[in-house]
Nucleic acid binder design. Structure first.
Lengths: 247, 247
DNA sequence: ACCTGAACACCGTTCAAGT
DNA sequence: ACCTGAACACCGTTCAAGT
């Protein structure tokens, strides 16, 4: 029976931290946070739990490593181009030197899309962003946004506040959206899910939820990405108004 | 040995969904997400798992009920008063009719403080806000903010966008802060934790993290609540600028 | 209607043993 | 140095049985 070992992967390459993290990301993408177990991991890697523990401290560290990998990839794109065509994929070489504002939009959108593709990221980013010893993912995002905030001309005394506010909006919005992405993935397609949610809103108590009922129809057709970027613009405008460049 | 049943609670009152949720909140507060187990719950309530399952569908539903309870309490305060004295606890009767802007600040601060007191809330709010069947907690927050957004004079077409953006900032910021609160709770006090984080930032690579290193000192002394409210003001200013009242 | 508690399947983690 | 796999303690959940 030793012959019938599942070789879900070719067995040529040796085990490595990298391969383990890669498999972890695949499991998380396929089945969410609950999909990442050491049993599933050992089966996929055709090995035993002990082997994994030799390369990785524990499950928490593994989750952290998976998060770092995905976030690093999202930030590495360093995209450009004005988001005029919201559908356009960034693959042609970028030449035009973008404004800091456009770059912030692009970084934000990169994170948004990463969370959209890997909904399990939301939990990680929302609450486990700082760990001991300090994970590198929070500073990475902070740095990427902060450089553009500086380029925007925000006075130095406001750098921390402004960059934090931007990051909070991005993580909050992307997190909410991940919930939708997840729910959408489970059977219903996106439009059906939106419609079901809008309908649920419309059936709330008229006294307690007058406002929510009144905007339910706006939920029905809305485009997540567009809304997200509109929110970014709102925050950027707020930044310009409350922390204008030094005179 | 039947005599030595732990009665962590007086045994007079019968089991009820309410008592179970209450105990769940206590366990979550005391030991975080990992502290809520059915064993701990049965011990605290001096009963068996079957009894709990009679009142509650499963662990997920229990977590949801705990979240709803705490969020409802936070929103019920419907506080007032201008936040001039950031330390002041709201206990004297409020009379002055506050501006929508102040009310939004107050609602936001209420949520911020709820997450600060119950750090496990962050995960719940960040990613499980919508469930099937639709939980009432998202609409509750949305409604509370939305009514004030309407009172602000934001044009109807922008209600959904603006209220969502506000909610995203609040949840994102409060979530990040919960991480700090949690970390602070684990031995170090708040100032020590901030200091340790700032020091860690200052030791990052000078090329890759030039900006983060440059603002590390701003992290050291900052007041979470103050920063949070400054962010709210930033967003409110952005709202006023990008979605001004109809002419 | 409400509760008991043994049992089940599954999980993260450890560790003596192998190569 | 790297891997194996049995074993341990713990978890959510079920269910026949009691009152």
């Amino acid at each position: 029976m030793a012959t019938r070992t599942r070789r879900s992967q070719r067995r040529t390459e040796a085990l490595s931290r990298e391969r383990i993290v890669e498999a972890a990301v695949e499991l998380l993408d396929a089945a969410g946070e609950g999909g990442l177990t050491f049993r599933a991991l050992t089966e996929r890697l055709a090995t035993g739990p002990g082997a994994i523990y030799w390369h990785v401290e524990n499950k928490d560290e593994l989750l952290g490593a998976a998060t770092e990998t995905v976030v690093a990839a999202a930030l590495a794109v360093e995209p450009a181009r004005t988001p005029d065509s919201p559908t356009g994929a960034p693959d042609s070489p970028a030449e035009a030197p973008d404004s800091p504002r456009d770059e912030i939009r692009a970084v934000a959108l990169g994170l948004f899309e990463a969370i959209d593709e890997h909904p399990w990221l939301a939990t990680q980013l929302a609450t486990h962003l700082s760990r001991s010893p300090w994970g590198s993912v929070a500073p990475r995002i902070f740095e990427s946004l902060g450089r553009r905030v500086r380029a925007l001309g925000v006075p130095e005394g406001s750098w921390f506040l402004v960059t934090s506010a931007l990051m909070h909006y991005i993580l909050g919005a992307a997190g909410q959206n991940a919930t939708n992405a997840r729910a959408g993935g489970g059977g219903l397609d996106r439009d059906e899910f939106l419609d079901a949610t809008a309908t649920a809103w419309e059936e709330l108590d008229p006294d307690d939820y007058a406002f929510t009922r009144a905007v339910a129809y706006q939920m029905r057709g809305h485009d997540d990405r567009e809304q997200f970027l509109a929110g970014i613009d709102l925050v950027l405008t707020g930044i310009a108004a409350t922390h204008p460049p030094d005179a």
